[in-house]
Amino acid sequence: MTSTNHKHYQTVKDNSVSKEVFELLHDEDLDMLITSPQPKGTELSKYYESDDYISHTDSKRSIFEKAYHFIKNIALKNKLSLVNSLQKKGKLLDIGAGTGDFLLTAKNDGWNVIGVEPSEKARSIAAKKGIELKPVADFDDHSFDIITMWHVLEHVPDLQNQIKELKRLLKPNGAIIIAVPNFKSYDAKYYGEFWAAYDTPRHLWHFSKTAIKKLFQNENIELVKILPMKFDSFYVSLLSEKYKTGKMNFIKAFFIGLKSNWKAKEKFEYSSHIYVLKNAKN
């Protein structure tokens, strides 16, 4: 990042894999948090090597994982509805496609789909579903009507280059859909260092509405719509309870999630947001 106006915000632990401690720095110009230090290359990949990293698996071993996949199926339908509201059927790219469930949903609805996913394990699961995923992006300029990144932008090591790449790949009248956690939500403030959506160091960046708007403006991409992800407050609160107390407090997590959504109405600060972005009109 080019900005150097960074101040200490919070110390957090990697609760799910390494138990190492990281610092969150507040970039006051962009109003976003930056994980410090940021692991690089193969060093970063070791933080994903866990059976508990369920976005890369279809595992349904525990009640928590079963609940995750139940909610995910509802979310898939909502995502497809959003995509269909923006464009007629065309070419769709999903970056960070995981095990390919969103692409499968879109493909079954008539979209021409392809995805990018660095995890070999996730790609092999997707292949069994008939979904082609590439390890890295290698596409022609202005190839896609819709580009999606569902809880992926926060994982990308080179943020500025990733946004430039989105600009390059998008058709002039296309749309980008970005979903990321919101560190300004009530559940983030309530759980503090235990907030599961910090997920350091896998999450390298932590966005606000202001940060998304400014980062994409730099590439002449306009923020046109923000939507809430209301399920996320419950899922994140449940995992945060586990990190804070050592056990799943379903009732407590439910009420914190409910309170977070209720408080979010005032300033539109939900646990996670979906951002719809398009090329700015000259």
Rank of each mutant, 00 (worst) to 15 (best):
A127G: 04
K128M: 06
A127D: 11
F216Y: 10
I178R: 07
Q87A: 04
N261F: 03
A67L: 10
P118F: 01
K121A: 05
K19D: 15
L258V: 02
I54K: 09
S59Y: 03
M248I: 02
T245S: 14
K244R: 14
L30E: 13
Y47Q: 00
E28T: 15
N73D: 14
D52A: 11
N261D: 14
S59L: 10
I95C: 04
N73M: 06
F207K: 11
D141S: 15
R202T: 07
K247I: 06
S55Q: 10
K184L: 15
F139V: 03
Y243E: 06
L103T: 10
Y53G: 03
K72S: 11
A126D: 09
P181R: 00
R61I: 11
S119W: 08
W111T: 02
S59M: 09
L25V: 02
D14H: 01
F207M: 06
E266L: 05
S272R: 00
D31V: 08
K121I: 09
T42S: 13
I146G: 07
K230I: 09
H142M: 12
F254E: 12
T4N: 13
D140W: 00
S16G: 01
K13T: 14
P201K: 01
Y186R: 05
I176E: 10
T4C: 00
S18P: 15
D141P: 13
K46I: 15
H26M: 06
D232H: 04
K19W: 13
K121P: 03
I178C: 12
K259G: 04
A196V: 01
K252E: 15
T99V: 12
T210Y: 00
L44D: 12
N73L: 07
A197N: 07
F64K: 08
S185L: 05
L24C: 10
V12I: 11
F255D: 12
A196T: 03
S36R: 07
D232P: 13
E193M: 08
W262E: 09
G115C: 05
A280T: 10
